[in-house]
Design a protein around this nucleic acid. Sequence first.
DNA 1: CCGTAATGAGACAAAAATGTCTCACATGGA
DNA 2: TCCATGTGAGACATTTTTGTCTCATTACGG
Lengths: 197, 197
Amino acid sequence: MSHMDYARLMAVDRDHVLRSAAALLTRKSTATMDEVAKSAGISRATLHRQFAGRDALVRALEALGIAECEAALDAARPDEGPASDAVRRLVRELESAAALLAFLYTENQLFEGGAQNPGWTRIDERVADLFKRGQAAGEFRIDLTPAWLTEALYGLLGSGAWAVSEGRVASRDFTFMITELLLGGALRHPARPREES
Amino acid sequence: MSHMDYARLMAVDRDHVLRSAAALLTRKSTATMDEVAKSAGISRATLHRQFAGRDALVRALEALGIAECEAALDAARPDEGPASDAVRRLVRELESAAALLAFLYTENQLFEGGAQNPGWTRIDERVADLFKRGQAAGEFRIDLTPAWLTEALYGLLGSGAWAVSEGRVASRDFTFMITELLLGGALRHPARPREES
DNA sequence: CCGTAATGAGACAAAAATGTCTCACATGGA
DNA sequence: TCCATGTGAGACATTTTTGTCTCATTACGG
């Protein structure tokens, strides 16, 4: 096995371990390293070889979450076309990372040591900028701040991921539910064609 | 000190401890009993006298959360007047319990032992019934299920509590932000008087 | 002033989790 | 086949957390 192949395989395993860990820790935040290892189908020794400890594991999860958010933002082209369409694209791109984000969102341990990872700041900015753009274009209402809309998006992503995992809503409705509630709200709006009977 | 007075004072202390614990555990889900005790300003011994262990503490938090939700639902009179007004009342009543709910919402450890507390089922039903009523009255759109609206409400409550605690939004805007986003969404709706310039 | 009762501080052992190590085994390339 | 490398299983000591205990102190009512 060459060095390159070795590095690639390690990366694949590492990603799988991280996703399993995220899925488990989202359900049980106090899970032990042994439980994390078992959930990923590996031994505690191997887990410990890849991540020095629980802290390193959480940091790696954070890095993965940041990377996925950045990738989703890039793929969603937040600066193109109507802001509402960009929001829809963004939610769709974030769907696969929603469970991971739900975990990281509640893992405030992350910036306990002073300041949070600057990656989140940047992501928050990019999302908030999208809402700002929508407000400037007259698409979005201006009495809800971009910061709040950003937080609300995170919260709804978490709720959506949770609702899907609990079987309360169908998986394929994920994007629809979140974007429709975030953009249109629960009220009927007769003036909008979408809600016309 | 009479028995009655004693019982009353214990209840007060107990409530304070529970709220401190909720505030801490929301920020750091892996906090130890010692940290919980310190955050409540009591010794570990006293904490252990009131709650046999970590599990008992979490159960007590759950019971408190259920009681607060039931009380909020009662106070909000979900069956009176327009459903949207009832939602506003409900969010306002739930504000003080939002941090606690945010913790319990992510503490899936609660129904790990088989089934979740029936109290939550009942609360979910009451909230969902409110949204159903709004749909039946033509107030709410019918393409978002009551179950999803209920989950979304929980998620937004959590995001709101978080945003306020982080200073991202003003505390007095809590109810407004949540109800406006939940009911009206981010889009401008020219037909609605509220958004007319 | 005197008891009652709860508390805080701390000692202590038991339990749980962690970090580190060895070793046998399997896998895949040379 | 032989070797290199990663892995799982498990032993082991260390650390952390927990549960239980005692005892001095404080607060409050009689």
